[in-house]
């Protein structure tokens, strides 16, 4: 194992801000995209159902 302790791991040799800044941002952005994909698909289904209901009246 490279790191003596978790503390050292987070410190990342003093560059913690930059390394975790980029990985953190990447994690957040990808998470946002996954959530928006899921929600987008549901919304499309809901909207299409509503339009179908409106058309078939």
């Amino acid at each position: 194992m490279m790191w003596a302790s978790w503390g050292e791991f987070w410190a990342m040799g003093g560059y913690g801000l930059y390394v975790w800044g980029s990985y953190g941002a990447a994690f957040i952005v990808i998470l946002i995209e996954i959530i928006s994909l899921g929600r987008g698909h549901k919304q499309t289904l809901k909207r299409l159902k509503r339009m179908k209901a409106w058309e078939s009246q």
């Binding site: 490279m2 990342m12 040799g13 003093g14 390394v19 990985y23």
Partner: peptide, 19 residues
């Protein structure tokens, strides 16, 4: 993070290239 050695030039900062 756990296998790649520390880079002699840039220390730990180089790990950003994996992203």
């Amino acid at each position: 993070f756990f296998v790649a050695p520390t880079d002699f030039q840039q220390g730990e900062a180089y790990r950003v290239i994996f992203l």
